[in-house]
Amino acid sequence: MTAQLKPDTWTPICTTNDLVPDSGVAAKIDNQQIALFYLPDEHRVYALANKDPFSNANVIARGLTGDLQGKTVVASPLYKQHFSLEDGQCLEDDSVRLDTWPARIEGDHVYISIQ
């Protein structure tokens, strides 16, 4: 069973216990694969598309996080391009951007808003 999509609503995905600090996990909502990154020092979750546009494989959630040139980023585990967690922008290629969704933590739960 995957969670149902409702416009303009926060969809509960998982609990904070499912997240890995400073690292990523993948989730699936309808047919959309989403990478969730948890940065405990910001107490914040970022949600990006899990599909790596350079390899067409669903691997972004398994990349390393960090910061580069002032941006908080994830590096694709396959060919190592960097994507900004904030807006999905690829640092190596201006024309490539991952979809992103608003995400938040409330209590023990993690929610995403998908339009």
Partner: peptide, 19 residues
């Protein structure tokens, strides 16, 4: 340490081109 490892070390296996 786990957050420092790249995917191969994290999952103790070698990622291939299709993930």
């Amino acid at each position: 340490h786990v957050k420092l490892q790249d995917t191969n070390d994290t999952f103790l296996a070698n990622m291939q081109k299709d993930g």
